[in-house]
């Protein structure tokens, strides 16, 4: 499949989703479907799907202890071992996982040395992917947390703090959130990277572009709704609280942009269990990261270990006994 075809397919799919929502709400007037039924269905798919996938992984055993050692392992007491890159305690493993999950430790290793003028080699880290990844995930998280104001009747206090930090510069009214900017910038970078770098273009599938476009669409519709086509937040919260109290209502007067936003989010939620976005759960289960490098000091059991056909010493000696005796090698029989 041609790379550009992949981009095109994914883009068409997301545009189709946007049009579908617009058509459904504006022309046919299916507000209760787009405002209530689809979000509920999407949530259930997400909820059940994610649990199903993780339990699916959990059912498969890890037969061998195969940590990747990213540093000196624990051996003799006077040799300095790397506590988090080749951990030998549970705490070490937890720290390694925390660094991995919270700071993208492995991606950060992506140091690329560069030759500057002159004979000396200097090493500069080119960690743009890491940076974009961090920005993307953390701004996404901030945005989700900020949305908690629509999810709880009494808004938790951290949400206000988060929002005030996020809107620190007070640009525009309503304040433009830094996380929104970072989010859109990161999504754009991640997309451009895929199309500009030939090797990235080569490995990318429609399944890589689709979530990017979908997430980008969610971000754009959200920002538009906040800054351009404003909606009545009281009604928005009326609707969202309707979901969470199981008393769904569809208030009149919410703009189409809101339904587009909600529909795209629903699509994302429903898509996650079937997609690579499951890496958010999978990263915790990766056997090369979440196992301690205590291979030689602690027993590890393979639940399906089975006996195999081996060549025993007796068979071996039977074959070579005479020669062994001749060569003066001790033998068991005779």
């Amino acid at each position: 499949m041609n790379a550009w075809f992949s981009v095109f397919t994914a883009l068409v799919a997301v545009i189709a989703l946007v049009l579908l929502a617009m058509l459904g709400v504006e022309t046919i007037g299916l507000k209760s479907i787009f405002g209530v039924i689809i979000p509920y269905v999407a949530f259930v798919i997400f909820f059940v799907g994610v649990a199903y996938r993780i339990i699916g992984w959990a059912k498969v055993p890890v037969p061998f202890r195969i940590p990747t050692t990213g540093g000196q392992g624990k051996s003799l007491p006077w040799i300095k071992a790397s506590y988090t890159d080749a951990p030998w305690t549970t705490l070490g493993v937890i720290l390694r996982m925390a660094l991995e999950v919270l700071l993208f430790r492995s991606l950060f290793r992506n140091t690329k040395a560069e030759v500057r003028e002159g004979p000396r080699i200097t090493y500069a880290s080119a960690q743009w992917l890491w940076l974009a990844g961090i920005l993307f995930h953390y701004s996404f998280l901030t945005i989700i947390l900020r949305h908690a104001r629509f999810f709880f009747e009494n808004v938790p206090s951290f949400v206000e703090m988060l929002s005030s930090v996020d809107g620190f510069f007070q640009i525009l009214v309503p304040t433009l959130f830094l996380s929104d900017l970072a989010f859109l910038a990161a999504v754009t970078y991640l997309f451009l990277r895929r199309v500009v770098l030939p090797q990235m273009r080569y490995i990318s599938l429609p399944a890589d572009y689709f979530p990017l476009f979908l997430i980008g669409g969610i971000g754009i519709s959200g920002v538009l709704m906040r800054q351009v086509w404003k909606v009545d937040l009281l009604k928005v919260k009326e609707l969202t609280m309707g979901w969470f109290t199981f008393h769904p209502v569809v208030p009149e007067g919410l703009g189409t942009i809101f339904y587009v936003h909600v529909f795209l989010v629903s699509c994302l939620l429903a898509y996650i269990p079937f997609s690579k976005i499951m890496h958010m759960g999978g990263v915790f289960l990766s056997p090369t990261r979440n196992l301690a490098n205590v291979n030689r000091s602690e027993r590890y059991v393979n639940p399906w270990n089975y006996p195999v056909k081996v060549h025993t010493y007796d068979e071996y000696e039977d074959e070579f006994r005479e020669k062994m005796k001749e060569a003066g090698i001790p033998v068991d029989k005779e």
Binding site: W57, N110, L129, G133, I203, K276, H279
Partner: peptide
């Protein structure tokens, strides 16, 4: 299942 093809 979980590769996102980030290209690292």
């Amino acid at each position: 299942d979980i590769c996102v093809r980030c290209g690292a």
